[in-house]
Structure formats: structure tokens, C-alpha cells
């Protein structure tokens, strides 16, 4: 391969309830990004059932692979692709296994190098589809499974500044949504309700030992107490107000910690990613924060905020450039994480 030739990576993502395959060019251009979502299935149970998720992944993996290749006009993988990548953690072990085995097998069959990708690095790398990142950067990663403040001293380097001690922000949205009688996942509906309501109820933000860590389980409990208390007094609650007040508390918690970290670490750039990055109140607040501190900001496009394989391809490209490849014996690492600063 000559240096000038385009780099095409086929990437797989299956860490939770989306089965996805994508072809990414030079780490920042999406040639295809096929995502099959299982939401309708897990809605039956009010949350992800791991065994059901694993079964769905296996049923869809070949189909999303073929569609991703076809849409990217890959007819000769061995000749056209530079590498194959897959998420190996963190996530549900049974779910991760399908994308990882599929990716490794594809690499073996076509004689391509294999790249293992950290799911969180994938979410952060979705920013590369918007514009190149400037360093040092700080990433705010908020999803159903993760809430992290990450430090990036340079490209492809990630350290944890702060993380959640209990529930992830998206998880808190789902749990409060359940209290309010909403379907799983509740993020989108909560946002719509919040827009119609007033943030007039005080739900306290938990204080953590490490200034930069998050805690959302207390917040969820205080919403639950508020609703129960009203129930006992047979009082009508305004669900839109509850949603607005809860969303405000979550956004404030994230902004407060992020601002404290900006002051201490002084990045030149902010990145926002993860499923909850689709929340408009959070986006607006982060945009305001970036403006205040004159920071460059890259928000993951809403269409790429949720789990998808394109972001894994973007992260894999950084590993490719750094020569970081993995063997066919690589296993999943369900609790994979970055190290603390």
C-alpha cells in the first residue's frame, strides 16, 4: 500500500443493543454506516435483556456486514480494505462477543489486520467526522452506560478526569422516565416533556469526594420521593415540570463538573459525545460553556451520538496510524476502561 492510497476500515459495533457495521475512509469520512436497533424488542422488558440482545446481534450480523460493504462499493475486501475493526469493550459480554468474533473472522478470511477498539474511544472519535480535534482536549462522554470526563493530552490518548460513581446520566433518564410511566429508552420523550414544563422543583445534585466525579442515583431517588409524596397526598403532579426539573439538574451537574475541570486542566478544545449528547438542553449548555471559556467545541452529530460502527471505524483509524493491531485470540473486555489521571 502506498502512503497516498485511501485507508478504508470495515468496523463492527455490538456492545449493547445496536448491531452495526460501517466502512470509514481515512478516519473521517463515512462510506456506509448500517445500524440495526433492538429497541422495540427490549421495550417489552423495560430495559436491555442481555441474552435477548446477544441473540438479536447474531441474527443481524451478516446482514449489516453485507449492506455496509455493498453501500461502500466494496467488492473485493482483501484488496480494497486496509483493516477490520470491532469494539471489544466496555459493554455486555454476550453482545460484544458477536461483533468481535465477526470482525476477527472477517479479518482472518480476507487476510486483513485486525484492530480492537474501546467503545468510549469510539464515541469520542465521532467528533472526527465533524472537524479535526485540537489538543489538549477534554471530552464529555454521556450515554446510557457511561458518564465520563476524559482528558486527551494528544491524539488517541485518553485519561479519566471524572466518572460516575453509580448510575450513568442516560440510565438516570431511563429510570426517571420509568417513574413517570414512559417507555424505555426515555431520553427523547423526557426531553420533549421538559420543553413543555417549568424547572420549578428543586432536585439536589450530589456532591462527590472527587470534585470531578458524578453521582445520579440520589437525584433519581429524590424524583421518586417527590412522586411518591404527591401520590400519598393524592396530589396531581405536573410530569412536564418533573421532567424539566430533572433534566435541569442533570445538565447542571454535568456543566458544573465540566467547568471545574476546564478551570483546572485548561484544554483548548471540548468534545461532546454519547447517546445523551443528543439532548438539546445539554448541547446548548455545553455550547455556552465553550463560548465562555473561548474553547473550540466539537459535538457529535445527533445522528452519530448513539451507538454505531462508523465511530468505531474513526477510532480504529487512529490505532491503525499508531500501528496498534490485535491478534485473532483477543477476547472481549466487558469492564474495559481508561486509567485515571
Amino acid at each position: 500500500m502506498t502512503a497516498k492510497q485511501d485507508n478504508l476500515i470495515l468496523a463492527f459495533e455490538s456492545s449493547a443493543d445496536e448491531t452495526s457495521a460501517a466502512v470509514v475512509k481515512n478516519g473521517h469520512e463515512i462510506l456506509s454506516n448500517i445500524v440495526a436497533t433492538q429497541i422495540a424488542s427490549h421495550q417489552r422488558f423495560g430495559g436491555i435483556v442481555p441474552e435477548v440482545a446477544s441473540r438479536h446481534h447474531l441474527e443481524w450480523i451478516n446482514r449489516v456486514t453485507k449492506e455496509a460493504l455493498q453501500e461502500a462499493s466494496i467488492t473485493n475486501p482483501a484488496a480494497q480494505l486496509s483493516a477490520v475493526a470491532a469494539t471489544y469493550g466496555p459493554g455486555l459480554v454476550g453482545s460484544l462477543l458477536i461483533g468481535l468474533m465477526a470482525g476477527k473472522t472477517f479479518a482472518m478470511v480476507h487476510g486483513l489486520p485486525f484492530i480492537a477498539v474501546n467503545h468510549l474511544a469510539g464515541h469520542i472519535s465521532a467528533a472526527n467526522f465533524v472537524q479535526p480535534t485540537s489538543y489538549p482536549a477534554m471530552a464529555v462522554m454521556v450515554s446510557g452506560g457511561h458518564t465520563e470526563l476524559l482528558w486527551m493530552a494528544k491524539e488517541n490518548s485518553f485519561q479519566i478526569i471524572g466518572t460516575t460513581l453509580d448510575d450513568a446520566a442516560g440510565e438516570a433518564f431511563d429510570k426517571v422516565g420509568r417513574i413517570l410511566g414512559l417507555n424505555y429508552p426515555a431520553g427523547k420523550e423526557m426531553q420533549e416533556m421538559a420543553a413543555k414544563g417549568q424547572a420549578n422543583i428543586h432536585f439536589p445534585i450530589a456532591h462527590t469526594e472527587n470534585t470531578f466525579d458524578f453521582s445520579f442515583s440520589g437525584l433519581k431517588s429524590s424524583v421518586l420521593n417527590y412522586v411518591h409524596h404527591a401520590d400519598q397526598l393524592s396530589e396531581q403532579i405536573n410530569k412536564n415540570d418533573v421532567a424539566a426539573s430533572f433534566q435541569k439538574a442533570v445538565v447542571e451537574a454535568i456543566i458544573e463538573k465540566t467547568e471545574a475541570a476546564i478551570q483546572v486542566f485548561q484544554p483548548v478544545q471540548l468534545l461532546l459525545g454519547g447517546g445523551v449528547a443528543a439532548n438539546l438542553a445539554l448541547r446548548t449548555a455545553i455550547e455556552h460553556l465553550a463560548q465562555t471559556y473561548h474553547l473550540k467545541l466539537t459535538e457529535a452529530p445527533i445522528s452519530l451520538a448513539g451507538d454505531n460502527a462508523a465511530m468505531i471505524g474513526a477510532a480504529a483509524y487512529l490505532n491503525f496510524k499508531a500501528g496498534r493491531f490485535s491478534g485473532l485470540d483477543l477476547n472481549t473486555d466487558p469492564s474495559l476502561n481508561f486509567s485515571r489521571m
Binding site: I61, N62, L97, M101, T105
Partner: peptide, 11 residues
């Protein structure tokens, strides 16, 4: 099954 499916799907 993931391995067998992918080999069969690609060959």
C-alpha cells in the same frame, strides 16, 4: 455460529 456464519457469508 458467529464464526461459521461470517466465513460462509464471505466465501
Amino acid at each position: 455460529a458467529a464464526v461459521a456464519k461470517m466465513i460462509a457469508g464471505q466465501t
